[in-house]
């Protein structure tokens, strides 16, 4: 039995401690946000926040999480009450198939948590680990820019 803090709530899970956080979130806690994309820490579809840092949940064992706070896209906001970043993605229609988008949101949120007004170059650099295959990059960048507000 492991106790996790997920999206501000304490959750008990019985998965074995070596289970990557991705499968715990999806299969034990029923959270859809983090996606299996590669299981190798190479594509970012599984990105979640661990104590505000963006991490690949597919290579983060349950045993490594400890007391650190897990935040998934469900923790940002809901379809009815979106967070500013989610709203910016909606306003820019920044998705095609959308499979990468929850990971994009969580990586972008980690940037905005650390630096509320990043430069365009910083945004590109920060988003580098996450892959999008549909080619929605321009809209994703625009959405993050919109959420961050115009450059000072």
């Amino acid at each position: 039995m492991t106790i996790l803090s997920v999206n501000g709530k304490s959750r008990q899970v019985t998965a074995s401690p070596d289970t990557p956080l991705l499968y715990v979130l999806r299969d034990d806690l029923g959270l859809n946000g983090a996606k299996y994309g590669c299981g190798l820490g190479q594509c970012g579809a599984c990105t979640v926040q661990l104590d505000r840092m963006a991490v690949f949940s597919c290579v983060t064992p349950l045993a490594a999480v400890g007391t650190r706070a897990v935040r998934t896209v469900e923790g940002l906001g809901s379809a009815e009450a979106m967070s500013p970043l989610q709203r910016a993605f909606a306003e820019e229609q920044a998705a095609q198939c959308g499979y990468c988008i929850a990971g994009m949101l969580m990586r972008a949120q980690a940037l905005l948590d650390a630096n509320p007004s990043p430069s365009d170059a910083q945004i590109r650099q920060h988003m580098q680990p996450n892959l999008c295959r549909c080619g929605t990059h321009i809209r994703i960048l625009r959405a993050i820019r919109r959420a961050a507000g115009p450059l000072a």
């Binding site: 070596d18 289970t19 990557p20 190798l40 597919c58 983060t60 064992p61 490594a64």
Partner: peptide, 14 residues
């Protein structure tokens, strides 16, 4: 034992 658990979840996939 802890290293083994962490390795299984973080490293073994590759």
């Amino acid at each position: 034992p802890i290293g083994a658990t962490l390795f299984a979840g973080a490293c073994a996939g590759c």
